[in-house]
Design a protein around this nucleic acid. Structure first.
Lengths: 154, 154
DNA sequence: TTAAATTATTTACATTCTTAACAATTTTAA
DNA sequence: TTAAAATTGTTAAGAATGTAAATAATTTAA
């Protein structure tokens, strides 16, 4: 039975040639799967990014982490509040600058993060299996180029 | 002078190996540039997607367009309202189904869309220049695989 | 012909992102 | 040394986006 107006019949026109559009569709799908995998941890992709930076760079300030992730520092407040309320991260007063907070994983956070990473790697493997030999480093390299491109203001 | 805590000094750990994280960073950057290019048109990436589908598939219903773009049909209402208020798109009563609206570009919308596409292609060329021979079709193919991947629920 | 499904729509809500402002503190420059 | 400028975390407000549930009108299926 022909299903009129099913998505197979749709002409996507220029969208099918735009890297930005394809990036968006891919990103939404992989983020949804990430969220499903990590829902039992109560962790979103954004929270995972913060945790990963804190784990590898203990003692960084909120602003430094925001900059590393391309976020605004004001958005860090509620994120860190949330991670603190989950007893995963703690703010400690910075020795050198009394304005800023140094962030660390709590002992429980260290264990939590290890289990979380195991789940994230399952998710990643599911998507990496779609890529042929050599394609993963290549797509990551291309994505880095796109992420770091700063076109001149016209 | 050594700049402590500058982003070059940060260890991204697992993030540097996650396709989802890299996708996110690339997508945000390319969408921001898209938005800058199209701000004088008042068009966001989301609105451009709808316009592109309407232009190539005149007469489609709102629900069909939402499905094509992976959006919820309730989100289409305000989008179409906005495009109608800009005199770019018009809702016409469907001949076959009095519940639904068929969407078309207005005469002005046709001209508008052509100018818009010219600007979008400038934006696209800026990013495509980052890719070597053969890399654009390859990344689009990989992104399609990632976008269409439906992992089995565990 | 009745029951079930679909369409566009509205409403509400949660997220996320931006922007601007603020007090406390640090840095820079006179 | 001191005054001005910049930075930090924070709060608050607003825009954008996505999701979920409900509704009336209409169509489809039993």
């Amino acid at each position: 039975m022909a299903n009129l107006n099913s998505s197979e019949d749709i002409d996507y026109g220029i969208l099918d040639t735009l890297v930005g559009y394809k990036l968006r569709r891919a990103q939404v799908n992989i983020f949804n799967d990430f969220s499903e995998h990590c829902s039992r941890f109560g962790i979103t992709p954004g929270l995972f990014g913060v945790l990963s930076i804190v784990e590898r760079n203990p003692g960084l300030t909120q602003t430094a982490i925001a900059n590393a992730l391309g976020n605004d520092r004001s958005a860090m407040v509620s994120v860190v509040d949330r991670l603190e309320s989950m007893n995963i991260v703690e703010r400690k007063p910075s020795a050198s600058d009394r304005r800023s907070h140094a962030l660390f994983l709590t002992p429980h956070g260290e264990i939590f993060y290890k289990e979380l990473v195991a789940e994230v790697l399952k998710h990643e493997a599911s998507f990496t299996s779609l890529l042929n030999e050599g394609e993963k480093p290549l797509i990551i390299d291309m994505l880095d180029r796109i992420a770091n491109h700063k076109p001149a203001k016209q």
